[in-house]
Design a protein around this nucleic acid. Structure first.
Lengths: 155, 155
DNA sequence: GGCAGATACATGATGCATCATCTTCTGTCG
DNA sequence: CGACAGAAGATGATGCATCATGTATCTGCC
């Protein structure tokens, strides 16, 4: 940490632009989801994963890994979603500690209603201004950083 | 909104990778700052802007625009930073409604202490795995999206 | 001068994210 | 078998983000 290598001008600009974009983009997406159907981006993600799963059932720990969330965040979040009737909890026969999270009818309906508008917003605000090359570059970039993050947390 | 245009596979992959990267990256940066000096990323941003300003003083509304935050978020945040002794509030002579936020000694010291480690982490987790071209591409991409966001909120 | 609307900022309520900690159960090794 | 490490999950406390709303002040216009 001696002689802290600062960021050069290009990096500085890129970093600031990235931070600003990410803040405003997630704010905009959250607002749209919230306004149109009372869901947060986090709710949406949970629901998407449950919808993809067989019978809309998953063990919390599977959900946790799929979402890359902290365990306690997921647990709290599921409590709130349960309170709102979006998911149900069930006991797990094979593992006495465990549980299942199950999509309710209301949950399925919520995601079905929410999805088109959300996707449309993602398009409007993001993909519509990007070329296919840029999309590809972004995917590469994100993957590289994720690999680095995996390495860093595994250290 | 009829016939909702879905995202194609490349976009899907890019979007998921982006979301995942941004979630983990900001979590990692927050953790590092929090652990090393008790600041959040948000605190850091506020302090950076104050440090850049003449005499470490700014009107809240200037800070708000510089940060692209909601007004109420900033107000609450400044209250908490005040409670922790990082900033001071002062009355504004020219405008009776207004105020000034002033960096305290503790605030200046906090950012000075935090900066090297934070920059080092940003490098380690992000820029070290990217080529200059990728940095450039990111800056372009973010700028384009920001322009779109500006247009969308102005509508 | 005085009033209408806009601007600067604060506040209370609510949901969200993280940390530290607790409970219950499983699997393994002696 | 029994002990015990570790996994699955819940929970309380705290700080953060947003919404709705409130108050004081300013500015422009008649």
């Amino acid at each position: 940490m001696s002689a802290p290598r600062w960021l050069d001008d290009d990096q500085q600009r890129a970093w600031r632009a990235y931070l600003r974009m990410q803040g405003r983009l997630s704010a905009a997406l959250n607002r749209q989801l919230q306004a149109s159907c009372g869901l947060s981006l986090a709710d949406y993600d949970v629901l998407v994963h449950l919808t993809d799963a067989a019978e809309g059932r998953l063990r919390p720990y599977e959900l946790q890994r799929a979402l890359d969330w902290e365990q306690s965040r997921l647990s709290h979040h599921l409590s709130r979603m349960h309170r709102r009737g979006l998911v149900e909890r069930e006991e797990c026969a094979e593992d006495g500690r465990g549980a299942f999270v199950v999509l309710t009818e209301a949950g399925r309906e919520a995601i079905t209603t929410a999805a088109p508008g959300h996707v449309e917003t993602v398009r409007n605000l993001f993909f519509d201004v990007l070329s296919p090359d840029q999309v590809d570059a972004l995917q590469r970039l994100a993957t590289q950083v994720l690999t680095r993050l995996d390495a860093a947390t595994g250290e």
